[in-house]
Write a protein that binds this DNA or RNA. Sequence first.
DNA 1: CCGGAGATCAACCTTTCGGTTGATACTCGG
DNA 2: CCGAGTATCAACCGAAAGGTTGATCTCCGG
Lengths: 218, 218
Amino acid sequence: MSGIRILLVDDHPVVRAGLRAMLGDFEGITVAAESGDGAAALAQLARFRALGEPVDVVLMDLQMGAGMDGVTATQKIKAGEAGTPAPPVLILTTYDSDADILAAVEAGASGYMLKDAPPEHIRQAVLSAAAGRTALAPEVAARLMGRIRNPEPALSAREIQLLQLLATGLTNRAIARQLFISEATVKTHLVHIYGKLGVDNRTAAISAATQRRIIRPV
Amino acid sequence: MSGIRILLVDDHPVVRAGLRAMLGDFEGITVAAESGDGAAALAQLARFRALGEPVDVVLMDLQMGAGMDGVTATQKIKAGEAGTPAPPVLILTTYDSDADILAAVEAGASGYMLKDAPPEHIRQAVLSAAAGRTALAPEVAARLMGRIRNPEPALSAREIQLLQLLATGLTNRAIARQLFISEATVKTHLVHIYGKLGVDNRTAAISAATQRRIIRPV
DNA sequence: CCGGAGATCAACCTTTCGGTTGATACTCGG
DNA sequence: CCGAGTATCAACCGAAAGGTTGATCTCCGG
């Protein structure tokens, strides 16, 4: 009778209000509750389960200020309670970086929409998720297809380690000392990194790696 | 009778819906219209002026996907039409980096709020702006105060602008072209920046500036 | 009205970085 | 067992960046 029951998870009150208003206009969709972070969302889900009124879809942002991030929350939701089926998680976020999308999909999200999507798309995505289907924003789907067709070379652990030091502003010599290798080796690694990231200097490498969430912003 | 009339400018339909719902709950505040980008906002303002029903406050995001960015839009709004007073512009955005704040203030914004602010704060800010006063989010105000109290070598607006470009991985030559200045000037600025940040190369400068929230992580 | 700070540019020099080539060694999977 | 990928190092060269000195112009505040 109440249609699809949704749990909203976003750290911005403004966004929550927007989704509530937007989804409330649609027939068959009800916003059951909302949370400001991942931990609160898990608590809400448990509460609804205990009441025998589980939510049908979790609509969640990936970037959440403090506390548990969206990927972790998604993992925990999908892990769920033994015996009770976990609700589908639909990611509604701002960025469409490869790392974000992959992390969300790996964590078990049923869909990935961007916040600038028109309301109708969001509605469709919610319906898909509730029906157990997958929903990807066209932009996101295109990126995934591109990745499969044209797989980006993966960075090795050592290269990532180097990148992380690079981002702190160390010179090649300093990195070499830090890692107990020669400066020549550092340079070789850097050339490989530049090639894989498609850049030609260290600052651009840091920028690219940060954008793709290969390294965490320093 | 209609109270304070607002023009919402944000590229995300979700955020616009949220602000509309949120502000609609408040007495004395009316959302007159909304736009998805700076150009549309200017057109809207002109239209309302022509109708003899100017808006009282423009509530705008700084980051807007395509087209004119928020700072440029703010400048153009404040430039306005000869003879007609420009409405106050209240910035409501996601980041609180020095670069964004300075740019907004220089462009003539009357306030700077963060999107994760509670509705009541946003309401207060709108009222302040409409009354011709300035409104800063507590976090933003604190940062500005800190800048003043802590005579940490203050970077000039130009230097911050340079840093922001630096962080995207541009070379000195590219930065020079971007800013329409010579490479020599870029180098001079960089030397000053390094001195103020206590570093001696560009990657370290980016790291230091990001940590101190002088620039926003790219 | 003068000093200081910021923005602009130039010339010069040193150091670092980027790019290439080539080599050795280890590991892992087919 | 052998090739692919990774990690290591060396030598070399040109390009970019770092550092210094010095100069002009503008704007702002005392």
